[in-house]
Design a binder for these strands. Structure first.
Lengths: 222, 222
DNA sequence: AATTATTAGTGTATAAAGTACACTAAATTT
DNA sequence: AAATTTAGTGTACTTTATACACTAATAATT
C-alpha cells in the first residue's frame, strides 16, 4: 500500500462542548484561540489526538487541561470532517459533549483567565471554524436526551433537592414544568434516593436532599 | 506549530454497516480482505478518506464501489479510534450504517463475486479489526431507532404492502407485532399513501400497495 | 410574639396513548 | 365447489401523561 497524499496536512482532533448551568442559564465553555487560523476568536476547547491516545482519552485530557474538571459525563457527539472546515489544513474532528455540575466549575488557575470563559448559550460570540454547528448539534442532542434519559442528573452536585433538579429541566427545555408531575416522574425512575439531610436556604421550608444511586450512570427510559 | 509524529502512519477511513432484509432475515454486507492485516478475513466495506473528500462522500463512494447501490439511507454511527484497533498503523474510522431496500441488492458485477457477500446478522463469520463491535452498535442503533422513528421505511422498495412493512419490523425486533395495531400506527404517521394498485401473489386476497410520501426522509416520532 | 413572605411538599381526576383480541374478504389451488 | 392462504377491519381495556390547589415549614419583619 502506498503512502497517502495526507502526510503533511492531516490532523485528527477532538472538540468538546462543555455544558453547565449557572445563574439559571445553560452555559458553555469557550477558549480564545492563540494561533491562526481564527486567532483571537472564541472556539470550543479541544486538542490534537496523540499517536497512542484514544479519542475519549484525548477529549478527557483536553477537558482537564483547559478547565481542571475531571470525572464528569462525557459522550461522543458526532465527527466533523468536511474539507475546508479549517482553511489551513484538513482536520477531522471528533466532537464530544460534557456536562459539568454547577458546584465544580471553578476553572483551573493555570489557564490564562481571560483566555477561557463561560458563555450563555443564547449569547454566544462568533465562533471559529464550524463550531457554531457543533454547538447546535450538541444542544439538540442534550434537549432530546432529556426526554428519554436521566442525562440531566449529571448536572447535579453530590447532593441536590428536587426543586434544583426540576430547575435544570426547566432551563434546558426553556419552559416551566409541573412540580407534582415532575416529582412523580423523577422518583419513579428509582435513580435517586434521599440522603436524610435537608438544605436550608432562604426564608422558607427546608428541602430534602437527594443523591444519585448510581453516579455517572445515565439510564435510557421509556 | 510543528509536525505531529503521525506523518507516515495515520489513516482516516470509513466503515459501513450495510443492512438489508432478505429471506426474512436481517443481513449485512461483508467483503473479504485482500491485504494484510486480516488478509482473507471478512470485514466491513469501507475506504480511506481522500484528501478533498467529505466523510459521508467517502462512505457513499465505498458503498457504491462495493455494492453498486446508491441513493440509499446512510447515517453516521460512531467514530472508532482506539490505538491498536489496527495492528499495523493508527486508524481512525468513522462508521456509517446504510439501509438497502431488498429490491436493490444485486451486487455490482465488477466486484469479484466471491469477495463480497450478504450474511445473516445471527450467523456472521469472524470479523477483522473491531468490526464486530461496530456491527453490534449499528444493530443496537437500528433497533432503538425503529421504536421512535420511521427508519424502517427505508428498507422498503418503491411500492410495498403494509404486511411487508410489518414483516420488516418483526424481523428487526425479532418478535411478532399485532396486525391491527401496527396498521393503526403506520397509517397515523401520515408518511405513506396508497398508490391505488394492488399486489397479487400467492393464493390469497391481493394487497393494497403503498408508497412513501417523502422518500429518503426519516421522521422522529413520539 | 405575631405576621408576612417564600419555597417545599402532597393527590386526584381526566385525557391520551398503547395493547389485546377475532372475524370477514378476496384471491389461488385442488 | 371446497379448501387454503393472506388482506383487511373495530372496540374494550390498560397504562401513561397531564392538569390542577392547597398545607407545611422556615426566615425575616413588625
Amino acid at each position: 500500500m502506498t503512502q497517502s497524499p495526507w502526510d503533511r496536512s492531516l490532523a485528527v482532533t477532538t472538540d468538546i462542548v462543555i455544558f453547565t448551568i449557572r445563574d439559571r442559564k445553560l452555559e458553555l465553555l469557550l477558549v480564545r484561540r492563540a494561533a491562526a487560523p481564527f486567532q483571537g476568536q472564541w472556539a470550543l476547547p479541544g486538542g490534537v489526538v496523540g499517536p497512542d491516545e484514544g479519542l475519549k482519552a484525548c477529549a478527557t485530557r483536553a477537558l482537564d487541561e483547559q478547565t481542571g474538571v475531571s470525572g464528569v459525563y462525557l459522550e461522543q457527539l458526532y465527527t466533523f470532517g468536511d474539507p475546508g472546515r479549517d482553511p489551513l489544513r484538513r482536520v477531522i474532528s471528533i466532537a464530544y459533549y460534557a456536562l459539568v455540575p454547577s458546584d465544580r466549575l471553578e476553572l483551573r488557575a493555570s489557564a490564562a483567565p481571560q483566555a477561557v470563559g463561560w458563555f450563555a448559550l443564547e449569547q454566544l460570540p462568533p465562533l471559529a471554524f464550524d463550531h457554531c454547528e457543533i454547538v447546535a448539534l450538541a444542544h439538540h442532542r442534550l434537549v432530546s436526551k432529556l426526554t428519554y434519559s436521566t442525562i440531566a442528573f449529571q448536572f447535579m452536585g453530590e447532593k441536590f433537592t428536587l426543586s434544583e433538579l426540576q430547575a435544570v429541566h426547566e432551563i434546558i427545555l426553556a419552559q416551566r414544568v409541573d412540580k407534582r408531575n415532575f416529582r412523580k416522574w423523577a422518583l419513579a425512575l428509582e435513580q435517586i434516593e434521599p440522603t436524610g439531610e435537608e438544605r436550608r436556604d432562604g426564608k422558607h421550608r427546608p428541602a430534602q436532599l437527594y443523591r444519585l444511586k448510581f453516579p455517572g450512570r445515565v439510564e435510557i427510559i421509556r
